[in-house]
Nucleic acid binder design. Structure first.
Lengths: 212, 212
DNA sequence: TTGTAATTTCAACAAATGTTGAATATATTT
DNA sequence: AAATATATTCAACATTTGTTGAAATTACAA
């Protein structure tokens, strides 16, 4: 219950929420400090430059997220035995940990995943941060998919993953667009429905687009 | 060939490229002016505030884009006759005009579509700008899809479109991520392959996820 | 308690930013 | 050519921004 850590984390929480919604350049150190209820200079003291705050936010939950998703993959692999899991099961293992995180009582997870959506869609950050942090995990999943579709062209599998990644990213971003488009019949915050449809959608996409 | 219009358009071109890559807050009026080879005050003279420059960029090509895509839809509808076109044909009509635009000799189109990707993934801009500019067109396509899948639940169709929109958006963004992930076997700039896979991927996704 | 290290605040800096009024130049019209 | 409108530049403003040194406060060990 040491107050040091409390304030340090409050800075990360505030930065997480602000960066996720406004992007890196849309956030000021003063806004972060103010939102965290902390003096302006404190963020600099704990983390260094503004960019370092951003990276600290980005890295904070990355390890746990990668661990959870890898465990989910290993679980379906163990259940499937030597033949390996189906595409559906692999996609499920890839996505459901995110749904669980978004439904977590800690609202920070929702912000964090929206931040990942921001980074993943940015040509500025995408290559630098996303690849170094998440490619290892993604390649594990892609290997499992290749095993489940031994006849599929490798290049096509990458592009199918790209489509999966895009659909996922837009879901993580929570833009509210589907609410308006559907005249409020659907809601960006309805993750259960989102993933419930995304999983068969993507699985069918892989199967069809990787033919030949 | 009047030089007035030349400079005015150069400002929009520069702003388009910069906003697409860096986002609204990552761009300064000075960078726009400098990139356009124009005095700082000129952008303000022609367009007003910075936000007005952004909206001018966003609106400049929207009309033509909507027109082209609507024509593509009407063409496949005319070809299909009363029964209406298949999902594949509808998705094609939705996507191929974008591929053509990205391959246009005018590099501004590529930047413009990357800008749309930025806006579509942003919760700040998404609802305000995207909906008002593109929802009418999207609803035309969704109506065609509903006709092609009369048994499908409406809510599911919206979510399937959301998946399509996400996959498309990531492609428009050109982040370079797939290059790195695939160890340079795939390239963000290879639109032909991207859409060649996206179309069957999405069509199969619609069919499978809208069952029941 | 005393002393030391860690944390937090205060204050201020230099640089960058959006915006605008006035001056100049260019084009267009009369 | 003169006059008018349009376009462009110049110069400067008030804010905002990231960053940092010094002071003050708090936690902790001896």
């Amino acid at each position: 219950m040491s107050p040091k850590i409390e304030k340090k984390d409050k800075i990360l929480d505030a930065a997480e929420a602000l960066f996720a919604y406004h992007g890196y350049d849309g956030v000021t150190m003063r806004k972060i400090a103010s939102e965290a209820g902390v003096d302006l200079a404190l963020a600099g003291y704990h983390f260094g430059k503004k960019m370092d705050v951003f990276e600290a936010v980005f890295q904070r939950r990355a390890g746990e997220l990668n661990r959870t998703r890898l465990e989910a993959l290993q679980k379906v692999q163990a259940e499937a035995g030597k033949s390996g899991p189906t595409i559906e099961k692999i996609i499920e293992a890839f996505l459901l940990p995110l749904e669980i995180a978004q439904e977590s009582p800690d609202p920070g997870w929702k912000n964090y995943l929206a931040l990942i959506a921001y980074v993943n869609n940015s040509a500025v950050w995408g290559e630098k941060l996303m690849s170094s942090t998440f490619d290892a995990l993604v390649l594990e999943f892609l290997a499992a998919i290749k095993k489940a579709m031994p006849d599929a062209d490798e290049e096509k599998i990458y592009w199918c993953y790209h489509n999966l990644s895009g659909a996922l990213t837009l879901t993580l971003a929570q833009t509210g667009r589907i609410d308006r488009l559907s005249n409020n019949k659907c809601h960006s915050s309805d993750f259960q429905t989102a993933y419930g449809i995304m999983i068969p959608f993507v699985a069918a996409g892989f199967k069809e687009a990787c033919k030949g």
